[in-house]
Design a binder for these strands. Structure first.
Lengths: 240, 240
DNA sequence: ATATTTGACCTTACGGTGTAAAGTATTTTC
DNA sequence: GAAAATACTTTACACCGTAAGGTCAAATAT
């Protein structure tokens, strides 16, 4: 992973020396995070991987914070919302949520950025906009869109994080693991449930939760679009 | 916040010199995190607050990781599961989830510990055990308990994190805020929904999500306990 | 009462971190 | 060809967690 690209190659046929660019830096940063964890990414380490001194990076990013923002954007690119005409809006949203979780699976060390840090760049706002557009397409007015947007967002973010914790080996974790308590007499309920929380089941569990949430959305959307058109029964939760 | 307690008071009537203890250290650590953020907590900083050199702390904790584990336990103490005979199991769980989120409100800087780090100590396993006991009381078999445990856990963890991000001023955040886009023509959906995501609404939004999840749990539990007993619904506290 | 052990804390040091400030060399522009 | 801009380096500072070993008062043993 430490490629040490031959950008400079001291004596040999100096080739116009292509300079670094933000994209290459972000790629390298994500590669390091994937390989060595978030705390494995330091400016010096990143510089070395790119064949450059740490301070050179400050020519392309004002600081590590902005670099991490760029890594977030890069991650978000992997979460795709299917095009508007491809399928019904709720299905589009479901696809997005599933691919969002995939980010946690593919980049377990980096995913926390999406949970911990604010979405503060233009690109991330474009994502918000498209998601909320789909909510609107599904027939949710802004107050209800806000509620379900949060519900599903909380869930997906939390699921990604918990997935990671399950797979986890963060820097200074205690060696104790869930599995060690599986046969414990002192924690019988934990022992009974733990077998169903294994890695192999996480996909199904995640899908189950999405089922519950999207089922609720489907009902509300149906009620709404009904009322919107003429006036049906509708779930009366709304308020204020 | 930097109390610099007079534990040593050089010349004056040296008073048996009460030594530090883990509890006092954890209290001080949490106080620092609350006041200055998670990255504001360093061993040196903590030592200073306690009137002691940093290395003295290593007499009470093997390292910063174990100290953070202790802070997690301290935080978890604030999430209370009402006693078994106080109310029906699903209501007990709901109370727990609400108080769990309160941790995020009271300790926004520390809450991420509960999401990011594994639960690895005895005390945290006791919490798991009691929660799963309540699931059992509610009539869920282990596979279904696992699913709903995750669903509600993902949600509550994600909600806490997102709440924090909303209130956030993490170390190197971009100055851009959601509100700056409220009137934007470029993000009309965001502009429409943002007013409903303000701090004042977060409690209601969180409650709405819990409503959806617990409604689904109620239905499933009813189906289960009905099948389990004979035909009645029965809240039925049962078992050991 | 004295000697010994122990517990609690301190000092020093090492290799890391992000980044401010200033220097250097190469490329581009006029 | 001179001037300006760009890309990168050097050096330095104030932090970080913690390993290793030292110090000194209180507790215990003799």
């Amino acid at each position: 992973m430490a490629d040490q690209t031959e950008r400079s190659c001291p004596g040999r046929r100096r080739k116009a020396r292509v300079p670094l660019n933000r994209e290459a830096i972000v790629d390298a940063a994500l590669a390091i995070i994937d390989a060595e964890g978030l705390e494995g990414l330091s400016m010096r380490r990143l510089g070395t991987a790119l064949g450059v001194e740490a301070m050179a990076l400050y020519h392309h990013f004002p600081g590590k914070g902005r670099l991490l923002d760029a890594v977030m954007e890069r991650l978000l690119d992997e979460a795709v919302l299917p095009p508007r005409n491809a399928m019904p809006p709720l299905e589009r949203l479901r696809h997005f949520m599933e691919s969002y979780r995939q980010i946690a699976v593919w980049h377990p060390n980096a995913f926390i950025l999406l949970v911990y840090r604010r979405f503060n760049t233009e690109r991330t706002f474009q994502v918000y906009e498209k998601i909320l557009e789909a909510f609107d397409d599904a027939g949710f007015d802004p107050p209800l869109a806000a509620r379900f947007f949060r519900l599903v967002g909380y869930y997906v973010g939390g699921a990604g994080m918990a997935d990671i914790a399950s797979r986890a080996r963060e820097p200074d974790a205690t060696p104790v693991k869930l599995e060690q308590f599986a046969g414990s007499k002192r924690y019988p309920r934990v022992a009974a449930v733990v077998p169903h929380l294994r890695l192999a089941n996480l996909d199904a569990i995640f899908g189950f939760g999405l089922d519950v949430i999207f089922e609720a959305m489907r009902k509300q959307a149906a009620g709404r679009s009904g009322r919107r058109a003429e006036g049906a029964r509708a779930q009366k939760r709304q308020k204020r």
